[in-house]
């Protein structure tokens, strides 16, 4: 087992463990903080894959923005919403069944895959990953249209948020 694999196993265990804490802890702010821990674990996984840009963006957007948004949302709730709600509803067994089936499906699909024992080829040191990403995003025969559509999507999100907030008032 290489050092990288050991680090990956620790990271994966940490991410799953804190993910479990998100759904089991009763205190909503604690749940949000455990979510931060989970997202950090995902960022570490990206870093292990040498996806530097995605790893940093994961922290900037998810921990810096979405987790803060969650905590703000939690702070807006009333006290009675925090303590006494049941953690399970009566459909819990459907969810459990779906989770087991999904896991089984993935296990079935991946059992014949040979990639588990392979090690990834090292990225040449001159390779400019961020530059390649930038080029792919802006060149007309690659992803320029999705790039611009992303802007429209963000606009739609903004308008939707404003509309919801406006109606509440």
């Amino acid at each position: 087992m290489t050092g990288e694999q050991i680090i990956f196993l620790i990271t994966a265990g940490y991410t799953l463990g804190s993910g479990l804490m998100v759904v089991t802890t009763r205190n909503l702010v604690h749940a949000a903080l455990w979510l931060v821990a989970t997202l950090f674990g995902v960022a570490v996984t990206y870093a292990l894959l040498n996806a530097n840009f995605i790893a940093v963006v994961q922290i900037v957007v998810y921990i810096g923005a979405i987790a803060i948004l969650f905590i703000f949302a939690v702070m807006l709730t009333r006290k009675d919403l925090r303590d006494n709600t049941p953690q399970m509803n009566k459909n819990w067994w459907v969810g459990a069944l779906l989770a087991v089936l999904t896991f089984a499906g993935f296990a079935f699909l991946l059992q014949g895959w040979s990639g588990f024992s392979k090690t990834a080829a090292a990225i040449p040191s001159e390779f400019d990953a961020v530059g390649a990403l930038g080029e792919a995003l802006v060149s007309p025969n690659a992803y320029v249209l999705p790039f611009e559509v992303a802007s429209v999507l963000l606009l739609a999100a903004l308008v939707g948020a404003v509309y919801l907030a406006f109606n509440k008032k």
């Binding site: 957007v61 810096g64 923005a65 803060i68 948004l69 949302a73 807006l76 963000l154 948020a161 907030a165």
Partner: peptide
């Protein structure tokens, strides 16, 4: 606070 965080999120991603 929440509304500003929402607007912030959109511009952060942008």
């Amino acid at each position: 606070y929440y509304i500003f965080a929402l607007v912030f999120l959109v511009f952060d991603v942008e």
